[in-house]
């Protein structure tokens, strides 16, 4: 039998045992890495979005250089791919997909969600984006242009969603609580819960 066809759990156990034996990766490093990776979550991206909504200079920085904007509010970007930010406007909506694998702005949103990695999402997002978004409960109005961003190479992309109506005067922390991962990929739009 091809050794690679072994049970995945056993393959992981054998690989980690060999890497430890050879002094390449030790178990405590794995635990530490998991802790660091778990710390990246959509709350990070949401903080950036909320700040961009209230601070025009920060919004300009975020659109110019997403990585710098992330670092400015303490999100670690070292060793991460460059981050690009796509601004939604009343006449333009962005949707991010990776048709070839699952490139996702992990530094600011955390692990990619299950749907982002699915064959249905990867196939439909570029070919029938409006139909897919309508199924999601996010119909894109006729007069709004849609831009699908297929993340194929070295950049990672997040969407700066439109600030919802009815949030005038809200502070950053309260605004950040409204922003979900889907809003920053473009499968949903940011709303004030009714």
């Amino acid at each position: 039998m091809n050794v690679l066809e072994a049970d995945s759990g056993k393959l992981l156990a054998a690989v980690t045992a060999l890497l430890a034996q050879k002094g390449i990766v030790q178990p405590p490093e794995i635990a530490e890495r998991i802790a660091v990776t778990d710390a990246a979550n959509p709350g990070q991206g949401a903080r950036m979005v909320a700040k961009a909504w209230v601070d025009p200079a920060y919004r300009a920085l975020m659109l110019e250089d997403g990585s710098k904007a992330a670092e400015e509010i303490g999100i670690p970007m070292r060793g991460m791919p460059p981050l690009g930010v796509l601004e939604n406007t009343p006449s333009l909506h962005h949707l991010v997909v990776c048709t070839l694998c699952s490139c996702y702005p992990r530094a600011v949103l955390g692990y990619p969600p299950f749907w982002f990695k699915s064959a249905a999402y990867r196939a439909r997002a570029v070919r029938d984006p409006r139909g897919m978004l309508a199924d999601w409960g996010t119909p894109i109005p006729e007069n709004v242009q849609l831009r699908v961003v297929d993340s194929t190479a070295d950049y990672r992309w997040m969407v700066l969603p439109l600030r919802p109506a009815g949030t005038e005067g809200w502070d950053e922390a309260r605004l950040a609580e409204l922003v979900r991962d889907g809003d920053m990929i473009g499968v949903t739009v940011c709303k004030v819960p009714s």
């Binding site: 794995i30 998991i34 990776t37 048709t99 249905a120 196939a123 439909r124």
Partner: peptide, 30 residues
């Protein structure tokens, strides 16, 4: 290379939460 592949075009996107397992997190960390 799945962009626009016909056989997936009629599939609904499973938008549910699928929590990562210990196995998933460990592979990711390695």
């Amino acid at each position: 290379d799945m962009g626009g592949v016909s056989k997936f075009m009629c599939d609904a996107v499973d938008t549910g939460d699928h929590a990562l397992t210990e196995f998933d997190r460990t592979v990711d960390a390695v």
